[in-house]
Write a protein that binds this DNA or RNA. Sequence first.
DNA 1: CCTTCTATGTACCGAAAGGTACATAAATGG
DNA 2: CCATTTATGTACCTTTCGGTACATAGAAGG
Lengths: 205, 205
Amino acid sequence: MSTRGRPRAFDPDFALRSAMNLFWERGYEGATLTELAAVMGINKPSLYAAFGSKESLFRQAVSLYDVTEGRRVEQALYVEPGVRNAIARFLELNLEAYTNPDKPRGCMVVLAAMIGPPESAGTREYLAAQRAETRALLHQRLERAVMEGELAEGTDCNVIADFYTTVLQGLSIQARDGATQAQLRAIMRAAMAGWESLIAESVAA
Amino acid sequence: MSTRGRPRAFDPDFALRSAMNLFWERGYEGATLTELAAVMGINKPSLYAAFGSKESLFRQAVSLYDVTEGRRVEQALYVEPGVRNAIARFLELNLEAYTNPDKPRGCMVVLAAMIGPPESAGTREYLAAQRAETRALLHQRLERAVMEGELAEGTDCNVIADFYTTVLQGLSIQARDGATQAQLRAIMRAAMAGWESLIAESVAA
DNA sequence: CCTTCTATGTACCGAAAGGTACATAAATGG
DNA sequence: CCATTTATGTACCTTTCGGTACATAGAAGG
């Protein structure tokens, strides 16, 4: 039925993963179609036939990143017992991923398209929405802790979520700048050191 | 003596400042020579005669950024009394600059060239060195506090400096993503909330 | 076997990138 | 007044960008 015509000679999953890695390493603008096709092991017409356009390919690469990198790490937020613990573990899993020697350093969602020409504004907004998503997850976990009575009624979860989001994003930059995993871990511990005073300060008057 | 030949018809300071603003807004790769020349109010040959090349122009723009944006804000680190206060004020001045409605959001040094093609690796390293400079300033201020007895002997200033550097860089991303000044200020307060426990934890065994 | 359908590789497109040749304009030195 | 020096504007260079036309290869359907 759907097996009409010449079968494709490449593995789309492998190709997309290769594209993801290059986008992750070089960013959206920094990865050229020619390089992308090369690492994917295919020619440009095959690339366009299978993935549509550079922007479309990028979005699919981000989706793959979400599934293969993001999802696994975000689970800690729900699996780990206790808010504080959950957030600490979430940060830790992130920083471990950021320094994986087999992969580009830092988070693709943070680094791949922070800035650039007006033509690619859509791509940047797409990534910004992904970042907002991560913040929302953190926020949800905090609100759940309030619901469950672990955090005081009236705790301002927005500030706490914003703070840890900021640290998380800063960690990506540190990772790209060459920080070791031990250094990143120390930064994470520093961020968690303030937990008690932070939640104490975040209760509405 | 040096006033031979046709005098230049444009103000190099204004031109460089305009270039800085475009690089700040769009990043190194994202700002094209044609756009740069346009906002500088000159033609490309004049640009090349006065500033050398795109990379050279960029470095001069970063230098100008250092002088006009960085220096002023870094002074707080030394002028403000007390380490904690100095760092808090330093972060605050930064975040106020990051949300100045008359200027691009966030820090140019953090945002303008985080990622990109191999050709511009030199530019990225140049900016990375600038970021290291800022961290070094923070570190120096902390060590001074140890010297002066304000912080305990054996305090690990590296971790503290890394932590606040990470927060500072994260703030640039938050600013670009549209956070208000109030939100950024709340994040900074959250980062400072952990001060006491952070310095307590950072004393060597 | 022949048509139909999809995938492939080559070779190319127009646009835009960074950068420059060159003729001319505007100043100073003699 | 003329030579020299530097800046300007136009028009162009080469390369590379994202994207595609087109002829061909390889499978299934009839």
